[in-house]
Amino acid sequence: MKNFPENLSATPVKPPPSAGRHHVAIYGALCRNSIIRDMQFKTNFLLWIFVEALWFALQLAFVAVIYSHTDRIATWTRWEVVLLTGASQVIQQSFQALFLNNVVALSEHVRTGRLDFLLLLPVNARFLISLRTIDPGSLFGVFSGLAVMAYACRQMQLVPDWHQIAGFGLLCVFGILIHYSLMFLLASTSFLSVKAQGIVWGYYNLFNIARLPDAAFRGPFRACFTFGIPMLLVSNVPVKYFADKLDSPQEIFWLIGMAVLCFLVSEFGWRRALARYTSASS
């Protein structure tokens, strides 16, 4: 007779991980893979950091040239705009580090039929598609943005309190959420037409608006890019909170509200798109 363990219930059984821990563990593995992959192409990795630094320098040069001919753009002084440019770099590069490549790759997943495989995995499909890879090179962009912000603070003799720094960080998260949600929503249109990449890259043009001071704009343009496509909230509100320059506390609520709304709309768009998905390869 076969011997069974005396007490089956005493056998240690690993409890199923909670959904949160499960996703954290998967994300850890994805990050590790991305870093290992990037380190295989070291020269290319360094060159991309250089390219990003060059584009950031170019934006700062634009600010320098403009302020060599004027003292103010509406209510914004030179160093306030430099602070805004730095913050905008922090937000955009964070978005790039975490999401950009993944979101852009969505149309490719649809075109090649790889999406079938991703949908079958026992994990939330949007989570996996949005966070599949990270771009560690963009973190240097984040640091360069922070360094420029620190320099601008010194020039302005601005010494932020801890709550200004924490509030800035938190508001940046909502800014990143806006970029991510809108880009994801646009990428979901690739279900309708695989040539939608142009639309996704077109959105990149809108990033440029996020680093411009909001007070320079009035009328329909400002309304459209505040309450329609909220680009003028993304970096302006965090910086205005940081530099104690908010016109009214309502601006914070607008940023948070629009970020949540954009996320909900993108989730709705994603589900609608998935419902129409008929697979490309099979």
């Binding site: 001919h69 004027t70 103010r72 753009i73 509406a74 809108l206 411009l212 007070a215 320079a216 704009f217």
Partner: peptide, 17 residues
């Protein structure tokens, strides 16, 4: 869009100058 933004930005600069 960025073209309009640039033009509006210059308008704001000229209004101040």
């Amino acid at each position: 869009v960025p073209l309009t933004a640039t033009i509006l930005l210059w308008r704001a600069i000229y209004a101040g100058a």
